[in-house]
Design a protein around this nucleic acid. Sequence first.
DNA 1: TGTAACTGTTACCGGTTCGATTACATAAAT
DNA 2: ATTTATGTAATCGAACCGGTAACAGTTACA
Lengths: 141, 141
Amino acid sequence: MSRSCKFAVAVHIASLLATSPGQALTSDWIAGSVNTNPVVVRRLLSALAKAGLVASSRGSNGGSTLARSPERISLLDIHRAVEADDGPALHHQPPNPACPVGRNIQSVLVRVMDRAEAAKEAVLATTTLAEVTGALAAAEK
Amino acid sequence: MSRSCKFAVAVHIASLLATSPGQALTSDWIAGSVNTNPVVVRRLLSALAKAGLVASSRGSNGGSTLARSPERISLLDIHRAVEADDGPALHHQPPNPACPVGRNIQSVLVRVMDRAEAAKEAVLATTTLAEVTGALAAAEK
DNA sequence: TGTAACTGTTACCGGTTCGATTACATAAAT
DNA sequence: ATTTATGTAATCGAACCGGTAACAGTTACA
């Protein structure tokens, strides 16, 4: 396993909540659909709750629901909630400031990589959770 | 150090080669500008050579040069050369096929994440190495 | 010819991230 | 009280990355 699949699982979780409106789902039940451990689900639910996308209640009959309607939750909201944003991945050690390339490459790279990341996020921003559940329903029939 | 900075270093290396046209640079010299180990540089040069972006000659007076002009090398070329493309990061374990969400979420996710990745790559594809070195020169004055 | 310079590749170490798992404190319904 | 949940910390194994040493192969040149 190479990269993080937190985003994929978080969208999965949010889709489950969106298709069970008004009903609180437990981390155990969600884990059964995702096919993973309930603690993994709770960690992601915790991140989604901190971002204000999900509300959880504890105790018996507890569980989680969406904090707002699926039309008003974008995949970028979910992505930002569960994946850390460390900015573009630059050199570990600062390049040689005595070299004309070395002393300027990072600022140039940041500009380009930020633009590329913004283009990616624009796609996620214009895709709503409601569109995802719509596509899920369309795939069923 | 969390993520890979291979792309950043590879663009750095390519910029050095682009600003020394016709002159073969050694991995030792390049490592001095990048501020890292020559083997790290050679690993990236090897990947760039396999992608046909760089030509290297061995032995005394050896070194590396660009295999084509900086105007005809895009940052996407460099990105594809040094960073593995594993496709979108989906679930480790396959989701539960007995669940309507679980059995369809991955195909829906692939469509969205592929679109997002394509948007990012479009930015890198329209940025040439020549533009990078132009920005480097502009930052100098 | 032989030596110095340079590439190409492998192997290994130390640090970090990730998912899975166990454990346990806390909270709420009945 | 007991049961059912969440919330969170700790730990484990696997994977990836950058740095480093080691070494084989190649080329220029004295």
